[in-house]
Every structure is written in structure tokens, then in C-alpha cells.
């Protein structure tokens, strides 16, 4: 069975590594990580992942919401937002990107699992 691929977009490398490890444990194939919004779009175009895990706050000109919107419209790939504050992902702007899920930092193993499973279930 082919593993589902998930692109991790997170400028904090330690967190990115942690997520990647957890994804492996859950039986997915992590891609990336991408540091910036621009990079995320580029990698999503090249690798065509099944899902994108996107940090809302990226240290780049383009933030996570903008990147998620572009990825959704260009490649039709769903995004799960990661943020330290639930308020960010619940904002009207974030809702415009139609996220497949939302994860508040810090998150537990089971939370990551549940949100990804829900995202794939919706597909």
C-alpha cells in the first residue's frame, strides 16, 4: 500500500522534525519541511502531497493562510493549520482558505492523528 504523503510547512525546525517523526509513527510519509510560504507552494507543486500541515505564522513575507489558499486553488490540496493561537485559524481570513482542520500548539500525539484522519476522511 502506498503511503499517503503529507507536506510539513513549519519554520521551527525542531517542531518540524517532531511532526515528521510522529507522521512516520502514524504510517504517513512526511515531505519537506518547507520554511516559507513561497517554498511551500513550490514544493506542493513539485511533490503533490495528499495533505499540507501548515504553520500559520511563518517568518516569511507570505503567511500560512495565503500559502494554503494558493495551494488549494492551484493544486487542490487540502491544508491543516497549525497555530499557537486558536484565534488565528478561526479568523475570517483563515476560513476563506477552507482549511481541512486545525491544530493548536502544543498538540498531543492523538490530536495530530485525529485531525489528519478527519482531513483524509473528508476527501
Amino acid at each position: 500500500m502506498i503511503k499517503r504523503t503529507i507536506l510539513v510547512v513549519e519554520d521551527e525546525r525542531i517542531i518540524a522534525r517532531d511532526i515528521a517523526m510522529q507522521l512516520c509513527d502514524l504510517g504517513y510519509e512526511p515531505l519537506g519541511p518547507a520554511d516559507t510560504g513561497e517554498q511551500a507552494i513550490e514544493m506542493a507543486g513539485q511533490l503533490r502531497p495528499d495533505l499540507v500541515l501548515m504553520d500559520v505564522h511563518l517568518g516569511s513575507a507570505m503567511d500560512g493562510i495565503e500559502a494554503a489558499q494558493a495551494i488549494r486553488t492551484q493544486f487542490d490540496i487540502p491544508t491543516v493549520f497549525l497555530s499557537a493561537f486558536s484565534g488565528d485559524a478561526n479568523s475570517a481570513r483563515a476560513q476563506l482558505a477552507k482549511p481541512a482542520g486545525y491544530l493548536a500548539k502544543p498538540f498531543e500525539d492523538y490530536e495530530l492523528r485525529e485531525v489528519i484522519e478527519a482531513a483524509f476522511k473528508d476527501r
Binding site: E12, I14, I19, F85, K105, P106
Partner: peptide
């Protein structure tokens, strides 16, 4: 919170 996430990840 972000830092706490880093610690959790570590």
C-alpha cells in the same frame, strides 16, 4: 506557547 511546543517536540 511556541516555545512550549518546541520543548514538547524536543
Amino acid at each position: 506557547k511556541n516555545n512550549l511546543q518546541v520543548i514538547t517536540s524536543l
